[in-house]
Design a protein around this nucleic acid. Sequence first.
RNA 1: GGUGGGGUGCCUGAGCGGCUGAAAGGGAUGGUCUUGAAAACCAUUGUGGCCAAAAGCCACCGUGAGUUCGAAUCUCACCCCCACCGCCA
Length: 436
Amino acid sequence: MLDIKFIRKDPDAVKAACRVKNVKCDIDKLLDLDEKKIKIQQELEAIAAEKNKASRAIPQAKDESERKGIISAMQALGDNENNLAKKHKELEQEYMELMYLVPNIPSADSPIGSSDLDNKEVSRWGEPAKFDFEPKDHIQLGKDLDIIDTETGVNTSGFRGYYLKNEAVMLHYAIFWHALNKMRQKGFDLFVPPTIVREFVLLGSGHFPSGRDEVYVIGNPGKLESGEAVKEPAYLAGTSEPSLLAYHSGEVIAEKKLPIKMCGISQCYRSEVGSYGKDAKGLYRLHEFMKVEQVVICKDDIEESNKWLEEMREISQGILKDLKLPHRVLAICTGDMGSGKYKMYDIETWMPSRQAYGETHSDSNLTDWQTRRLNMRYKDKEGKMRFPYALNNTVVASPRLLIAILENYQQKDGSVAVPEVLQPYLGGQKKIEPKK
RNA sequence: GGUGGGGUGCCUGAGCGGCUGAAAGGGAUGGUCUUGAAAACCAUUGUGGCCAAAAGCCACCGUGAGUUCGAAUCUCACCCCCACCGCCA
C-alpha cells in the first residue's frame, strides 16, 4: 500500500508504475473516491460536532422542556447523518479495494520490461559442468538411486505429488540444517512459523487480493459449538514470509530493535493454478515444498534497505557457493517483479537437464508497501511514527535445489557425489550409489 | 469436550452511562544534582484524520453491529487470550 498523500501529490508517478508493472488500477478513480470520501467525512464531522455540543449541554439543562428541545433538535440532525454514514462506508470500501491494488513504485535502476525475457543478468558464479558422458535428469537419477518417486507421489497426492526417499530425505534436511546454521551465525532469529494463516496475514504481505488463486483455502477450518462452520476462513501460506511479517503487525517497534532479522523454515503450499502445463515433470514446480526464508525489517531508508537487499543476496549466494553450484543473478524487470516490489533479484542455479539456469531464489525490497498494510511502525528519535522497510529472500528451497545438486553432482558410474559441506549431515556419506 | 475468568496506552492496572483520551504505578526521554554513575527530585511521554501548519474539530479502550440525547462503561454477534478438568501427537 502506498501513502495516499503521495498518490495525491504525484499521481503520474503512480500511473507510470502501473504501466511499467502491468498493473490494472484506476488511479483517477481512486483519487475521485478519496475526494468524495473526505467531503462526506467533513460533513459527518460537522454534524457530530454539533451533536456532541448539544449533548454536553443536556446535563446543564434547567428543566425538562429545555431538555426535550435539545433532544428534538439533535434528532433532526440524525436523519441526514445516517444517509451520509452509509454512503461514506460504501466509498470507504471501494476506496480500500483500490488502495490494496496500487503497486509500489519500482526503483529507478530496475530494468523496464514486461516479462522475464526483459530481466537483466548482473553476475555469474561458477562454470556449468561439462560431462564426458550422457548426463541424466533428476527424475531418472531419482529412480535409479531409489530416492525420488514421483509416480507414486502423483497417485497419492495428485498432479505434482512426490515422495522423497532415503538419501534424498537426508539431503533435503542437510540443506536446511546447513542453512539454519548459517542464518544463526549471521545473527538472524530463527522461527518455525504458522503455515495456516488468517486473511489479514496474506493481505498484509500483499499475496492478497491479487494472488488469491495461488493460495489454498482450508475447507474446514473448524466448527463452532453450535456446529456451524467458523466464519473466518483459513489459508495455507505459500511461504513463511507472511507469518514472519505478521509477527510484528500492528506493533510500534522500538527503533533500537531495528534492523529485525528473521529466518523462518516452513512447508510451503502453492496451488499453481496459473501455470498448468508448465514444468509438469519432476521436482521443479510443486504444490508443496519446504523453504528457509529470510526477512529483514529496517529503517525507512532507501540506501540502508538496498544494502540489506545486497547482503541477503550474498547470504543466499554464499550457500550456493558452499554447495559449489554454478548460478547467476538477475535484476528483475518491472513487469516481472510483482506489484509490491521496489527492487528485486532472482538467483538462478544451473540445472543440466534444462540446459539452463532455473530460479531458486527471489530477493526483494518492498520498502514500506507491506508494513503500511500491516500497520507496523516505529518511532524515530524525533518521536515521529514511521513505517519501516521490509525485505525478503529465499535462503534455500527444496526439493527444487535437489534438482541442481543431483544433476550437477552426478558421476559417470551413475552415482551422485554428496556435496562436501553436506556430508557431515549424512553421517559422512560421500556418494549415493544406484540401487539394482 | 466441560466449567469459569478476561481483552483498556510501551508495560502492569483502575474505571463499569455525562469535562474520562482515560487514575495510579512502572518504563522511556529531557533536566537538576554528581568527577562519572546510581539514588533522589522536577518536567515531558497517545495514534490517525480534516491538513502543509496554527487554532479548532472528528474518530479510536479486541472487531463489528445495536440501545441511548450521550458508551471504555449497557445489549448482541464475531475474534482472541487465560485458568482448572478431560482427551490427545
